[in-house]
């Protein structure tokens, strides 16, 4: 408790003046999944009637309809202002869940998240309101991020220009291609210079030219002392944009350090050769 800034380990602490933007402490996220169930082989076929009956009376006993998924397990880290943090890991390793929890959009089951300012999360799947035009979604997103209506109006042209979707902005978002929707979401999320910007795979759907522009935008946001979190399966995107990487595996944070070192280890790890898991988790 004497000097909480200094990690107790052998490494010397980074400059103590660094201002944390996000503190994640022993975070656990357990999803409650309703509806999904493992089909019980004996319950299929002849005695289906019985299984329905059992399902009615012994809910959760024989054929559970509520499952829990432990998506993030005891994750702790501190991210600082101006830092750009990549989160890598295989599918289902808890990256996106972690990101959502850090954005305050998923309440922690255990542990705590502290965050400076307002986060904006930009996900590939983040639907604003797909029945509505891009224009209305810009107003909804912009105002939800804390801009006033007048400010959104003022930046409207800029947002549309940055997204590069042109007149499609007046069409319902349900008619957009995934790339167009991702570009528009990115443009909306960055219109307000959020204190913490979270990007979930969104950049990978854009074309090369858009990726370059969005990279510049991310740099610009970092220069304004904001923090950027990026979840991506594209190692080159992570290399380009991030100076620090968190490696998630089966819900655990197994490595946290400079981009190059972690990515090299990540790329060198072959799940077939090390089925027990990547190095560092014993």
């Amino acid at each position: 408790m004497a000097a909480p800034d200094t990690p107790a380990g052998g490494r010397t602490s980074p400059v103590p003046e660094r201002r944390p933007a996000a503190i994640v402490s022993h975070l656990d996220i357990i999803y409650r999944v309703v509806g999904g169930k493992r089909s019980n082989t004996s319950a299929i076929g002849d005695d289906e009637g019985e299984s329905i009956f059992r399902n009615l009376i012994g809910r959760g006993k024989t054929v559970a309809t509520v499952q829990s998924v432990h998506a993030v397990k005891d994750v702790s880290f501190v991210a600082y202002h101006g830092e750009s943090v990549g989160i890598i890991g295989r599918n289902g390793s808890g990256k996106s869940t972690l990101l959502r929890a850090v954005a305050g959009l998923l309440p922690p089951t255990n542990g705590e998240v502290f965050l400076a300012g307002t986060p904006a999360l930009l996900g590939v799947n983040a639907v604003l309101m797909s029945a509505l035009s891009g224009e209305r979604n810009i107003y909804i997103g912009g105002q939800a991020l804390g801009l006033t209506k007048a400010q959104v109006k003022e930046r409207f042209e800029e947002i549309v220009a940055f997204s590069g979707i042109g007149d499609a902005v007046y069409r319902p978002m349900s008619t957009y291609s995934s790339g167009m929707a991702a570009r528009l979401r990115f443009a909306i999320s960055t219109a307000a210079v959020p204190d913490v910007l979270m990007i979930d795979e969104a950049l990978s759907t854009g074309d090369a030219e858009f990726r370059k522009r969005s990279g510049e935008k991310v740099d610009e946001i970092r220069e304004k002392a904001s923090t950027v979190f990026l979840v991506s399966h594209s190692n080159s995107t992570v290399r380009d944009l991030c100076d620090r990487v968190l490696w998630m595996h089966h819900g655990r944070l197994i490595a946290d350090g400079p981009t190059e070192a972690i990515l090299t280890a990540y790329e060198g790890w072959d799940p077939k050769k090390h089925p027990a898991g990547p190095p560092g988790i014993g």
């Binding site: 909480p4 380990g9 402490s25 022993h26 542990g111 070192a261 972690i262 280890a265």
Partner: peptide, 20 residues
């Protein structure tokens, strides 16, 4: 790690995190 993984900063305790 055995393959030269850089050391992960140790986690702060819940109290340390709250204090920070």
């Amino acid at each position: 790690g055995p393959e030269g993984l850089p050391q992960t900063p140790p986690a702060l305790s819940a109290e340390e995190a709250a204090a920070l």
